[in-house]
């Protein structure tokens, strides 16, 4: 299977460990991953505060670049915010076909055309549906049965469109995790918001939201995420959150492909666990 991979800004800088482990796991599963040439920022949740049209044109530019590449393939995204932004283009054009002309009028300045022929896929969607739990289980060299893992989906992978899983009670990550032998922790907060950008603009509100997420994960050995922003909010502020909530809420937080990489026994430099800000040591000790 072939994918046009869009790393996005976070995965090519602060969340490089997600990028590297994603490519390693997909490689192990036999996928062909080609990076979209000359991609640019999708506008995050910010472009729409400047202009609605810009919030569609920025992701459409990347999709148009993928359409221009050789061969067939889906547009693969690891960051949930980037994923929703790229899905948004097709969803809006479906609702209002006149938008297509406007988007292309803007893209003409870069000699690009967007038609919508490339399908947008999230990493989790690809792992769960293109490969599936059986293919994943078949690659497991080290069972994770010693671990209880809380699957954190977050918001923008399942909302608003719910294209790859249920918006209220998704289960695909549970299935992928179970395939590694891990016990799936019953995680009631799996789709509650981590505060996203509020961690920078309104920290006390975000600390409380993350506090709730970490409290609900008590009893699990780690939390697993599929988005750099979720990962950052869950792992980087655990000291602040513990003080704010008045209890120790430290817990390892791993990206899904990092955990799969442990199960596949991939070389450590492909997982880059030393970059995780909440120490993954307790997880590694349990598996040792």
């Amino acid at each position: 299977m072939r994918y046009f991979y869009y790393p996005g800004c976070s995965m090519s800088s602060s969340a490089l460990e997600y990028d590297v482990s994603t490519k390693a796991v997909l490689g192990e599963l036999g996928a062909e991953v080609v990076e979209v040439e000359d991609w640019t920022c999708c506008g995050a949740s910010t472009a729409e505060t400047v202009s609605f049209l810009l919030s569609l044109v920025l992701p459409a530019r990347n999709l148009a670049l993928a359409e221009r590449m050789d061969g067939d393939g889906d547009f693969l995204v690891g960051c949930s915010a980037c994923y929703t932004n790229h899905c948004k283009v097709g969803e809006h054009v479906k609702r209002d076909p006149r938008l297509l002309d406007k988007i292309n009028a803007a893209l003409s300045i870069e000699h690009l055309t967007y038609t919508g022929k490339v399908r947008v896929r999230h990493l989790l969607d690809v792992l769960a549906n293109d490969f599936g739990p059986e293919a994943i289980a078949a690659r497991v060299k080290r069972s994770l049965s010693a671990l209880s893992v809380a699957p954190y989906y977050g918001c923008q992978i399942v909302r608003p469109y719910g294209l790859c899983d249920d918006s209220e009670y998704p289960t695909t990550m549970d299935e992928v995790l179970a395939a590694t032998g891990a016990e799936v922790f019953p995680y009631a907060m799996k789709v509650k918001c981590c505060g996203g950008v509020l961690m920078t603009t309104k920290k006390d509100v975000a600390l409380r939201l993350v506090g709730g997420l970490l409290q609900a994960a008590k009893g699990a050995d780690c939390i697993v995420t599929v988005c750099p922003l979720c990962q950052m909010n869950l792992e980087a502020y655990q000291g602040d959150v513990s003080r704010y909530m008045g209890e120790d809420l430290h817990i390892p937080v791993l990206y899904l492909p990092q955990l799969l990489g442990l199960a596949f026994d991939l070389p450590r430099e492909k997982l880059k666990l030393e970059r995780n800000m909440a120490s993954p040591r307790p997880v590694l000790d349990k598996l040792a």
Binding site: E48, F52, C155, L198
Partner: peptide
């Protein structure tokens, strides 16, 4: 925080988060 919870649950199907985007603009 642009979590889209209200948008997917509104029984009237109102695209609430789009309107919040318009408010910010």
């Amino acid at each position: 925080s642009t979590c889209y919870s209200c948008s997917v649950r509104c029984p009237r199907g109102i695209p609430l988060l789009e309107t919040i985007g318009a408010l910010k603009r």
